[in-house]
Amino acid sequence: MDVSEVLKKNEAKYKPVTVEKALPLNFDLGLMTVYDCNLFEKDFNKKKVLEKNLLKNTRDITQLLVNQLFGLPTETTDEGVMGTLPKPIESIPREKPVPKDKPLTRWEKFAKVKGIQKRKKTRMVYDESTGDLKPTWGYKGMNKKEESEWLIPIPANAGPDHDVRKDMENKRKERVEKNTKRRTRNMEEAAAGTAVGKNSKAFRKAQLKQTIILSKTSTASLGKFDKKLEGEPKIKRAKRKTESVTRSALEEREINKSILKKITGI
């Protein structure tokens, strides 16, 4: 028996591996995609013929894609031989929109206008009078230097029980307090900025209202027996929606049928 005859017979069973195309195809192996730019001049009017031709063409180009894929460099792993795909050529559009920039805080806006740049400050500062390093603030900090001097001149208009040291300390604490307040305000404004279409005051008001409503309904009786404040806003709850009484039986039949389908599976 001739071997070539057997081979030929076997070959006839399968479709050819090589496909002829007038124009070369565009492969994007990274995405395992192929684009066929060849003209498709077939009979478009006969649907069956068209379907058949489309199917044939699809098979052919898929064959070409598979041929290309098998030509890729391979790697032997525990799970078997794996091909390594190159980087995709076509870029797929991102799913989510590009995130918006965070709105600037009040300080950041101010710094931008003034051209102030952030720079690192060390905690320890050089004290010229004593010639050693001291912390900027905190225990024995430089901000307390003035009030801890051994001699402080009293202003001329000061009363008899005026404590200069205490006065300076209070002023320092006030400065800290003022800064903390501004910081919290800036943070609130930044939070309001991220909530679309609200200025900070309205945002805070709405937030406060929400908190009141929540705390009112956080008792065992959902706030039913709580004392009402004067001018307290009435809490509106969503009303239950029911179908119209005059809903036609025809419409209802279809709805009932679909519900029945879910229950019994017919």
Binding site: T242, E243, V245, R247, E252, I255, N256, I259, K262, I263
Partner: peptide
């Protein structure tokens, strides 16, 4: 008098 809600219809059926 009103039509049954979906939940009620389910329980009933």
């Amino acid at each position: 008098m009103r039509p049954l809600t979906e939940e009620e219809t389910k329980i009933f059926f």
